[in-house]
Simulated assay, not measured.
Amino acid sequence: MLVDLNSDVGESFGVYKYGSTEIIGFVSSINVACGMHAGDPMVMLKTVEMAGKNNVAIGAHPGYPDLIGFGRREFHMSKDELYAYTLYQIGSLYSFLRAKKLDMQHVKPHGSLYNKIAKDKDEAYAFLSAVRDFSKDLLVFLPPGSKSEEVALDIGLKVVREGFLDRAYNSDGSLVARNIPGAVLKDEDFVAKRAVDMIVNKSVKTIDNKTISVDFQTFCVHSDTPGAENFVKKLLKVFSDNNISIKSARDWV
């Protein structure tokens, strides 16, 4: 069995250090912050260089222009603004990739933007049409069953269905909001076992104790979780014990 394992990285900026960089050596794909919700040019350059050395697939991670709120607050933009800001962020990362002779595999929206376009078709179109206009060959990491997935498929983009290992799910398949107790899972052994269930049995238990069917192709591991790289090492061992291999989405999806 194959699965892509991705991580949001490059989230430091200026003198502020945030998230693990070591995790890049253990995942198959990374999502690089593009300077709006996190990151800066120096961080982007170093992150791209590290990804190249580790042969990890690279994606852009556009977010709302909200450094103070780390892109996790509700944010309002016009459709034209969202299109332009998305295109700008993809292009900024691409400049580093081109300079280092590396390819861009995918685009994954960040935080509040990810959740907003999962429910709003108009905003999803603004975001995803920017991706398409940059390159229709880019994969997009999106939640299955979402409005964003529907729009992406309608306009000819290839979707990689994303799940979250350390986040609780509602019975409709959406993520439990971070401000609700139990939304973020911290027991590493439980998360690893749950991951195997999601891959092998294609099911997950929801926060209200129901079991729903899921079919994820890539899983996110947050680099800002304390000890993230040690958890990924443990996760890879559990995967290996259950005949699960990780491979970047471009190679098999």
Rank of each mutant, 00 (worst) to 15 (best):
D122H: 14
L82S: 03
S129A: 13
A118N: 07
Y114T: 06
E150T: 03
H76D: 13
S95Q: 11
K136C: 11
F134P: 12
D122W: 07
L93Q: 01
L157I: 07
Y94A: 15
A130S: 13
V151K: 04
L82C: 13
L113R: 00
D137N: 15
K100I: 02
E123P: 00
G91F: 08
L113A: 02
A130R: 12
K119C: 07
Q89S: 01
G69A: 04
D120G: 10
E81I: 07
F141C: 10
F75K: 01
V140W: 13
L113C: 01
K116M: 14
I117Q: 08
Q89P: 09
I117S: 00
A99T: 13
K116S: 12
H61Q: 12
L102A: 09
G63C: 08
Y64A: 00
G63T: 11
D122T: 15
K147Y: 05
L142E: 08
L113I: 05
L97H: 07
R73D: 13
G69I: 00
S112V: 06
L157H: 05
D133H: 11
E74T: 05
F75Y: 15
I90M: 14
L139M: 08
D103M: 12
I58M: 10
Y125I: 02
L138K: 09
L97Q: 08
K147M: 11
A124G: 09
H110L: 01
K158P: 01
K101I: 01
L93N: 03
V107I: 13
T86A: 13
K158V: 08
P144F: 15
A57W: 05
K121D: 06
S78F: 04
I68T: 14
F134S: 09
I155G: 07
F134D: 00
Y88P: 00
K100M: 10
E123R: 08
A126F: 04
G91M: 10
G63Y: 01
L157W: 10
V151H: 03
I90T: 10
L102C: 12
S135R: 15
L102D: 03
F70I: 00
H106R: 10
I90G: 03
L153Q: 15
R72T: 04
P143D: 09
L128G: 02
N115W: 01
A152N: 08
I117R: 02
Y114M: 07
K79I: 04
D80E: 14
Y83Q: 09
Q89A: 03
G111V: 02
P109H: 02
V151N: 05
D137C: 07
K101V: 05
P143V: 06
R132T: 06
S146V: 10
A126V: 09
F75E: 02
K147D: 05
I58R: 13
K116I: 05
